[in-house]
Amino acid sequence: MYAPEFDYYRAGSVSEAAGLLRKYPGSKLLAGGQSLIPLLKLRLAAPVAVIDIGRIRDLKGITVKGGTIRVGAMTTHAELAASSELAEQCHALAQAAAGIGDPAVRNRGTIGGNVAHADPASDLPAVLVALEAKLTVEGPDGKRTLDAGGFFQGMMTTALKEHEILTAIEIPAHSKGQGSAYAKFAHPASRYAVIGVAAVVTTSGGKCSAARVAIGGMVPRPVRAASVERVLAGQELSAENIAKAAGQVTESLGNEVLGDIFASEQYRRSVAPVWVKRGLTQAAERAR
């Protein structure tokens, strides 16, 4: 398949990329290309220019400072999955990254590209919402920071403005007694999430002091399952209590549950509690 013709510019820095975005209206940023290149080949996207930010070194890498984990937007899924710091201090993110696509895709695909693309079947958006991540974006008016919860606005739609670039993601490292996990009902061929559940559990004195659950895959944008979180708060993390809380997930899903030829809306609604239970159970084990 051949993409439509486009011009190509390679940015050496974020400010240069921002300048190019402004100079060529209707252009697209190219990170790892694992979402954009398929779109170009299918001619679902036809930008006048592609601006390659893949060589900007400042956008790469994972650093931990003062209880905050900073992940550069151009960090690959393979790097996230291999990070021992993430595995310990932000388990759900490393776990979700390890399950994206396949090894060759993970070597190219980046967290920033994934998140800016905002595919509802993607894994990382729900994870970032559950982790209460903050996203740094840079544009002509300077830098701003957005909550992951407000960043995802709908199917393939984010709060990024036309000339803005997502540069980094900041996540609070887990505190003592906190654990997280990502449970995915993966489509057997594509490995995309049919249902994705990211869970963060905080324990204190043998009880769950707080739980955060975000659902992806089955909804246009990740949603927090407040109905689940409410039931679990203050309870012991027994199998029975987790199952009872997970059973409340439907209440938080809203009216826009997705369905397709593989899994209907009704089917996804029916099995969602099972995956919420698995996510919470794993997170609870890691919190101990």
Binding site: Y8, R10, L30, G33, Q34, I37, P38, D52, G54, P103, A104, V105, N107, R108
Partner: peptide, 12 residues
């Protein structure tokens, strides 16, 4: 490092 060359541009 292994990649899928159908989903990479020559310029990359």
């Amino acid at each position: 490092v292994a990649i899928k060359s159908c989903t990479a541009l020559a310029v990359q």
